[in-house]
Design a binder for these strands. Structure first.
Lengths: 137, 137
DNA sequence: ATTAATCCTATCAGTTTAATAGGGATTACA
DNA sequence: TGTAATCCCTATTAAACTGATAGGATTAAT
């Protein structure tokens, strides 16, 4: 299941991409338009900024803006920042690999085999989609 | 993330498929071979039985057995029983649909669009894999 | 100065997960 | 007929996670 954090984050990014003026976009404006609790959204945008996807301007007339063109922001990157690993099992994750406690040999594990396929098919979607695709009407 | 319940369930099904004698397979045997807490596994096999995927025999020399040929047990069915919805968002689920609170119109939702694609690509894996594929060496 | 914004930390209630516990019911077989 | 083996069922628990809230510190424009 997709967390609300990720869902809100994707919506916020889309909103910022759509309002592509020069001015940064206020958190309050996004929260209001997308029905997101403002304080919760604040923390989400903060992590997006720390990850490098967003920039921010403090103080009056401040807000958030994209650091790259929407067409250059891959869903793989966004999802890994917001949701974490794309793989369903750590032993199959490219960026967050971890060995399983219970598996003596993961090359003989039936779950492993299946989850590699799921990972690859999910990756093929996220690698071929950018924020530009999301913000199209 | 895949729950341990699902992971253990898949391993257990694979184990039963591999030991395809006539006799039912004991929970204890599966638990020991696959490093799964026995009591936990009991409850998992119980839900698999209630879903119709497994049959059971009580008492001495009892155990669990497959109700269909491994090649006829689709991963879509197994995953839905163990893990629940295959979609990452309820508003995109075929079998567990639910409307989002926050979305006024899901046809204009950027997240919705993306998650439909992820659902379809994941489904294409699960629809084309059966328990027989998992139990191949 | 005042105002409007981001930034940061802490906290909280609710839910879910993984596991454990204890015993009931059923069957094989000596 | 008794006993051991096995599935069946319900309840409980500790830990982790999620979604949200609270309160203020910091920064910048006017």
């Amino acid at each position: 299941m997709l967390s609300k954090k990720t869902k809100y984050g994707l919506k916020a990014l889309t909103f910022i991409a759509k309002s592509d003026g020069e001015d940064p976009v206020r958190v309050g404006e996004i929260a209001q338009n997308e029905n997101i609790p403002q304080k919760f959204l604040e923390s989400i945008l903060l992590t997006l900024r720390k990850s490098g996807l967003l920039g921010s301007k403090k103080g009056k007339h401040g807000g958030y803006y994209l650091r790259k063109e929407p067409s250059e922001i891959l869903m793989t990157d966004v999802m890994r920042v917001l949701e974490g690993p794309i793989a369903m099992v750590p032993c199959v994750s490219l960026n967050f690999y971890e060995k399983c406690d219970d598996c003596p040999d993961e090359h003989e594990c039936s779950v492993h085999k299946l989850m590699v396929e799921v990972r690859d098919s999910t990756l093929s979607v996220f690698r071929n989609r950018t924020l530009a695709d999301l913000s199209e009407v």
